[in-house]
Design a protein around this nucleic acid. Sequence first.
DNA 1: TAACAGTCAATATT
DNA 2: AATATTGACTGTTA
Length: 349
Amino acid sequence: LSSAEESVKSLGETPSLQAPRAEQPQSSERSEGSPPSTPLPLPLTSSSHSSLSIQEMVAMSPELDTYGITKKVKEVLTDNNLGQRLFGESILGLTQGSVSDLLARPKPWHKLSLKGREPFVRMQLWLSDPQNVEKLMDMKRMEKKAYMKRRHSSLSDCQPVDSGLQGVEFSRGGSPLHQQLKKPRVVLAPEEKEALKRAYQEKPYPSPKTIEELASQLNLKTSTVINWFHNYRSRIRRELFLEEVQAAGLVEEGRLVKSAEGNCCDGAESDCPIGKSGPGINRSHASPLGLGLFSCLSDSNPSASSTISNSARLPRDSSLRKKKVANLNNIIHRLEKAASKEEPSEWEF
DNA sequence: TAACAGTCAATATT
DNA sequence: AATATTGACTGTTA
């Protein structure tokens, strides 16, 4: 563990050079004994003759700057013409779509679960591997070679005769014409999305009854509506974070670059500034988007969401404003929920 | 049991 | 072709 700790510590701060490390020839010890998971085809490489499972590393990892890491990764990938698919599948063990999402909207370290931190540790590990790019490019070549090979052998019989479709129709392992036996991915029409968003603004946590109503009104399955709300809530939270980070970046001031510990940078969680908002001067560099929003809650009527959107000093940008409002309603919901149980007595904001 | 966190993977966009 | 979006699924959590 101690030796492991070292390699992990190196992950922290300085995202620069890294201990050399002797390359170990293919780990044949794909020891299945690997604790709980990690059944990935990950060469993970780097670190001393492999020692800890990523999970152990994640557990010991110091706080990482997820935003900074993704930024750098994106840079390295584009600079070297390496795609997300290859990177994701060989380095992170994730699909292209997931990688894209992760790189575009990383959640702050303190909000990630152990599992969620894993990709970031892997990315940091990769960034500190002096041969990262080279290795990936090698894989790229190998893939290409394999691809050419395949195409060559399959073209041996049928010629460029509009091959494309034909090949797909009959060769691919499965049954080509299994008519819609697969659920045909639901695609919500823009108007339906609008309706759902409107409903969300009213009530981020609709009751089963409301959900049922929405479903029938929009002619959607109940589960679809439920899923939509789950997804929307969590995605809105992420975007809020991203915007905060970027906004903060614009205010390049003499403030610690390190994200101040679990403070403000987060309006969606219960650990936000409610209690300590005091004289309002504490948080010197309080979020540029000023979450001093709670002042607007003083006027007793929590259900009047419209009141909030008008009175609060929210960002003028319509899009951001909407998200802020939605998030506020989300927070209100939680507070009310919390207030309803236990002694509904003293609740002075 | 409801809400989440992470992802997948089918589609959409670029 | 590569990257972005997003409904749904799986495993947790409380």
